[in-house]
């Protein structure tokens, strides 16, 4: 296949020294298989601490995996020579959550946008660079560009800064943009317009997106009829078509997550049932067992789940990690 990015049997272990000789190890990503095809939007959802941002950093090459392979267009990125690596870096861009922290506060928007272009296109003439910047600003809806280019990040609103980040990510003609919670810090009334901009970029320029979030509702909105990957404690527990998964989730964790999402309709919300989950706290990543990572909180867990490694099984159109896939009851959508 012609995947842009493929992760194979990926493990990430962070270690932290405790005292002189001891080390604490955190298995942040465990046995992750993941791929992105050109032009698709894939949503990655999970609770805080489940490793979704780490996954984003692996995909963009900001973090090296402990074990496993990261393939860019079929070739492992850590075997690349300089020119190929530069090509990878240009093709995969990252949009951070905190747009204020992501822009240099003492540089104008113009300077921030110019830097990556001249870094990668040394021969480009000045007026060409300027034209390119104007084009990008217009594309992301910052019109007229002259009005915004001379400003500093603090003079823009959150939504405008997020648009600048989009423009900066676009400036190198990427094939894939990893967006890490791009709308969580933006006012509700503006969120939708940023999401619409992302799907416009996806459709018009055929850029693939990895949309990292904890908000299933926006994931459904942007990745409509495309794929979703649900993560729990460093594992992808369920992956498949988002419409299928949101109507008929098969993994117990996805079911719990969907039951907890508040629905903006008081009549439906009043009928929402209890969440099928044990315990309120996300389990610690430190003392995980060899078995299923959801074992401690799963209402259907049995002895086998604690120790035996969980295989990936097909369930309908989705792939889930569960020992007792057939015995999980069907989730009923609140209406």
């Amino acid at each position: 296949m012609n995947e842009i990015i493929e992760l194979k049997k990926l493990h990430v272990v962070f270690s932290k020294r405790v005292g002189l000789f001891r080390e604490r190890r955190f298995h942040v990503l465990k046995n992750v298989d993941f791929f992105v095809r050109p032009g698709e939007i894939i949503a990655v959802v999970g609770e805080s601490g489940c490793g979704k941002t780490t996954l984003g950093r692996i995909v963009t090459g900001l973090l090296k995996p402990t074990k496993g392979e990261v393939l860019f267009e079929g070739k492992p990125i850590y075997g690349f020579l300089n020119a190929d690596f530069a090509n990878f870096r240009q093709s995969v861009q990252f949009i951070q959550q905190d747009s204020y922290a992501a822009l240099n506060p003492v540089r104008t928007i113009y300077q921030s946008l110019r830097a990556p272009i001249i870094r990668h296109h040394r021969k480009m003439k000045n007026d060409e660079v300027d034209r390119r910047i104007d084009e990008l600003m217009t594309f992301v809806g910052l019109n007229p560009p002259e009005q915004f280019l001379v400003k500093y990040p603090h003079q823009l609103s959150g939504g405008q800064r997020q648009r600048v980040l989009m423009a900066r990510a676009l400036s190198l003609n990427p094939k894939l943009i990893v967006a890490d919670e791009p709308v969580s810090m933006i006012d509700v009334s503006l969120r939708l317009s940023i999401l619409n901009l992302m799907s416009e970029l996806n459709k018009k320029l055929n850029i693939a997106f990895i949309y990292i979030t904890h908000d299933l509702a926006t994931a459904k909105y942007i990745a409509n009829d495309q794929r979703i990957a649900v993560m729990y404690l460093g594992e992808i527990v369920e992956v498949g078509n988002i419409n299928d998964i949101l109507t008929n989730p098969r993994h117990p964790y996805t079911q719990a997550l969907l039951s907890a999402v508040p629905i903006p309709d008081p009549i439906v919300a009043a009928r929402q049932k209890d969440i099928p989950i044990k315990g309120m706290n996300i389990a610690s990543i430190e003392n995980r067992t060899t078995g299923c990572s959801f074992f401690e909180r799963c209402p259907y867990a049995r002895e086998k789940c604690q120790h035996e490694q969980v295989p990936v099984v097909k369930s309908g159109n989705a792939q889930i990690r569960c020992h007792y896939e057939k015995e999980i009851p069907i989730w009923v959508k609140p209406q």
Binding site: V188, S189, L190, R191, L192, S193, N196, L216, A217, T218, K220, Y221, N224, L246, L258, V261, I263, P264, D265, V268, K333, P334, Q335
Partner: peptide
Amino acid sequence: TPSIIADNSSLKP
């Protein structure tokens, strides 16, 4: 406000 149960095509900012 997007919702997980509704058809989101009529949403607009």
